[in-house]
């Protein structure tokens, strides 16, 4: 529900990409869109839901009908796997998942496995490397070289994905000059050598949020959830409101998303 790269996800669907493996630590709408479009064959995740709006129905049906394979972890197991990859380490330890059935799912592959520390006798889970081919992240500002920042600071796990990925495609609310980064280098989130491609996509996270610029759009979520319960008419809805619009601007327009304003309660503080 927060800062998902929705403009890029929509474009993946429009380009008819198939058989994708997606890594999404705690996921929602983007994975459900891709599931609805039949774009994914495998999801590596800890959770897929639309939170207060309900279950992600296309993801759920995809897994129940065995069209989508889920490789299931938990949030912190995946953070640790990404950190192992980012640092080039064989594994990163955590206590996450001990005693749960989540570990049992990986007995054969041993991607996460329970071990005992030789000196203290403590049990931990060794989380092995999780290589990512391409990370997709959204940010507030980027220059043409690929320096980028998230305002006012990075909250979520985007950096874990970027650091674990071979390449990163970045969408941004605004393109700025490199001098803007030199003026306040302490605010930079990603340096240019960590990013490969920059896409200018204002409101590119809608209908999810991009704190503090705009909140998630409840009305879209409600319409989407209502449409998801009618499997016959859903494709018409999905085509008209999600896949069909020729440009991102058109998508925003037809879904009445162009008036997105600052997150409630943070208006005055984040000018």
């Amino acid at each position: 529900m927060n800062s998902a790269p929705m403009a890029m996800v929509r474009e993946i669907i429009r380009q008819g990409k198939k058989d994708l493996t997606m890594v999404a630590l705690v996921a929602g709408l983007p994975i459900d869109w891709l599931a609805a479009a039949g774009s994914i064959k495998r999801v590596i995740t800890g959770l897929v839901s639309l939170e207060g709006f309900g279950l992600a129905q296309h993801f759920r049906r995809g897994v129940q009908d065995r069209k989508i394979v889920i490789e299931e972890y938990s949030e912190h197991l995946l953070i640790c796997r990404l950190q192992a990859q980012a640092h080039g380490l064989p594994f990163v330890p955590t206590r996450a998942g001990l005693g749960t059935d989540v570990l049992k799912l990986h007995r054969d592959t041993k991607t996460v496995r329970e071990e005992v520390d030789q000196s203290t006798g403590e049990h931990y889970v060794a989380c092995t490397r999780l290589p990512i081919e391409i990370a997709l992240v959204h940010c507030h500002e980027a220059d043409h070289a690929g320096n980028a920042r998230v305002n006012p600071k990075l909250i979520w796990m985007d950096n874990e994905l970027v650091n674990a990925a071979s390449s990163t495609v970045l969408s941004t609310e605004a393109i700025v000059e490199t001098s803007a980064f030199r003026a306040e280098p302490w605010r930079t989130t990603y340096p240019r050598f960590m990013t490969s491609t920059v896409v200018h996509a204002p409101f590119g996270a809608l209908p999810t949020s991009m704190f503090p610029s705009y909140s998630h759009n409840s009305r879209f979520y409600e319409r989407y959830v209502a449409a998801s319960s009618e499997s016959k008419s859903f494709q018409t809805f999905f085509e008209k409101y999600v896949v069909g619009p020729e440009s991102w601007e058109e998508f925003l327009e037809i879904n009445d998303l162009t008036k997105a304003g600052p997150t409630t309660g943070f208006e005055s503080k984040n000018k």
């Binding site: 705690v26 995740t45 800890g46 959770l47 897929v48 839901s49 279950l55 992600a56 993801f59 759920r60 897994v63 129940q64 889920i70 299931e72 938990s74 949030e75 912190h76 197991l77 955590t94 206590r95 996450a96 998942g97 001990l98 005693g99 749960t100 059935d101 989540v102 799912l105």
Partner: peptide, 21 residues
């Protein structure tokens, strides 16, 4: 059953982690 679920739910998210920690 995990491999042939009657209902596929959201997933545990951070539950497996935090319930231990």
């Amino acid at each position: 059953a995990y491999d042939a679920p009657k209902v596929r739910l959201a997933g545990g998210g951070g539950m497996a982690d935090l319930s231990v920690m």
